[in-house]
Simulated scan of single mutants.
Amino acid sequence: MKTIATAAVAATLCLSALPARAIELTYGSYTSPTHTTNRLGIFPTMERIEADSNGEITFEPFTGGAMGGPKELLGNVSNSVLDSASVVDIYVKSSLPVSAMISSMMAIGGDHRVMAGAMNEMQLLNCPACEEERAANNVVGLSWSAISPVHIICRQEAGDLAGLQARKIMAPSGLGPLVQAIGMTPVSITTAEMYEALNRGQLDCAVGSRAWLDTYNLKDVAAEVITVPLGSYFGVMNWTINRDVWDALSPGQQQAFKGNMAQNIGDIVWAYEADDEVAIKAFEENGGKVVDPGQAFVDAWAEQQEATVALTIEKGQADGIEDAEAIVTTFLGLVDKWTGIVADAEGSKEAYIKALQTEVFDKI
């Protein structure tokens, strides 16, 4: 018996000394491998996770919609077709209604660094309803990113409010009703369909980051960019992982993800700023026009921005979201908090990442 017990102990010690199981995780994105988020955010984060897990975690990325478009990626992660993906909540609103309600307030997003900070703190620490809807979809959300302030990009010159009115426009999230209120005609398509729709004249304009001139090649079909920013979209759950896959990871492997999320967000929001500058400079150098639409447009848009919070609450209640007003109010408080944090960071990416780590990820 002693020999058997000794052998059992020895076997247990040998097993405990074995390294954690190596795993290759698939990752899906409908955007191209050269897209700002992938090139300067997701791919570098994958490399850091691989290093921090001592090679136990590796990735096989599928970009450009190879494993699903923006409407399919959540379901593909949920059903284990993919291990992980980037998920945009507005395209799967019926599955993530609370998250989509929050991100529909993109008109208030004057600073994408603020909105990314507020969204991560909301989703990970202050929104039980958000966690419930992710659980219902069998996924875990690790981080959210925000794109730089969006602008109207048109295939033909418009110039001012009168010139923009009656034009067909792709306006994401909650911007659709707002651009309609100032006289434009919103068209419901995804960003993956945007280039072709502009090229074929199915769209006159699109609302997006100026970096999209390069990342979606809109420079090839656009003649004009309007200077007035319309807000920032902050509903991209860029690390969405199948819950069963996540639970099967060792604590050390999970930490390799958790320890890199603040850096991932900082990389993305700063990358958008840099890519914006490069894209708009090249656009102008090649004959594209950057146009001030005039005071009438500024005033009309300001009215819509003031109305967006009340409209969001009203729409959320109509969609059956319990405590819609309380959820929106909580988020607005976090926007105020992160406005102060970003101001204190004084443009420092390092200070911003540190704040994300201490205010959000260290508290999970």
Rank of each mutant, 00 (worst) to 15 (best):
V9K: 07
V9Y: 02
A10D: 04
A11E: 10
T12W: 03
T12Q: 08
T12K: 03
T12L: 13
T12P: 04
L13Y: 06
L13T: 09
L13D: 02
C14A: 14
C14R: 12
C14T: 12
L15E: 04
L15P: 01
L15Q: 11
S16L: 14
A17W: 09
A17C: 11
L18C: 03
L18M: 08
P19W: 08
A20Y: 03
A20T: 14
A20F: 09
A20K: 08
A20W: 05
A20Q: 07
R21G: 05
R21S: 09
A22V: 09
I23A: 15
I23S: 10
I23W: 02
E24N: 11
E24Q: 14
E24D: 13
L25S: 14
L25C: 09
L25E: 12
L25D: 13
T26H: 08
T26N: 05
Y27F: 12
G28S: 02
G28H: 02
Y30N: 04
T31S: 07
S32V: 05
S32D: 08
P33A: 04
P33E: 11
P33I: 06
H35Q: 06
H35P: 00
H35C: 00
H35K: 01
H35T: 03
T36R: 01
T36E: 00
N38D: 00
N38L: 01
R39W: 02
R39C: 00
R39D: 05
R39F: 10
R39K: 13
L40G: 04
L40N: 10
L40Y: 08
G41I: 08
G41C: 06
F43K: 01
P44S: 07
P44G: 06
P44A: 10
P44W: 09
P44M: 08
T45Q: 02
T45N: 05
M46Q: 06
M46T: 01
M46E: 07
E47L: 14
E47K: 15
R48I: 07
I49G: 01
E50H: 13
E50R: 15
A51P: 10
D52L: 06
D52Q: 14
S53K: 08
S53Y: 15
S53M: 11
N54L: 14
N54F: 10
N54S: 15
N54W: 06
G55L: 11
G55P: 01
G55R: 04
E56I: 09
E56V: 12
I57H: 11
I57K: 11
I57W: 10
I57N: 08
T58F: 14
T58R: 14
T58E: 12
T58Q: 15
T58G: 15
F59I: 10
F59A: 12
F59D: 12
E60M: 15
E60F: 08
E60N: 11
E60R: 15
P61Q: 12
P61Y: 03
P61S: 09
T63E: 01
G64Y: 07
G64S: 11
G64D: 11
G64M: 07
G64K: 08
G64E: 10
G64R: 02
G65C: 09
G65N: 03
G65S: 07
G65W: 05
G65R: 04
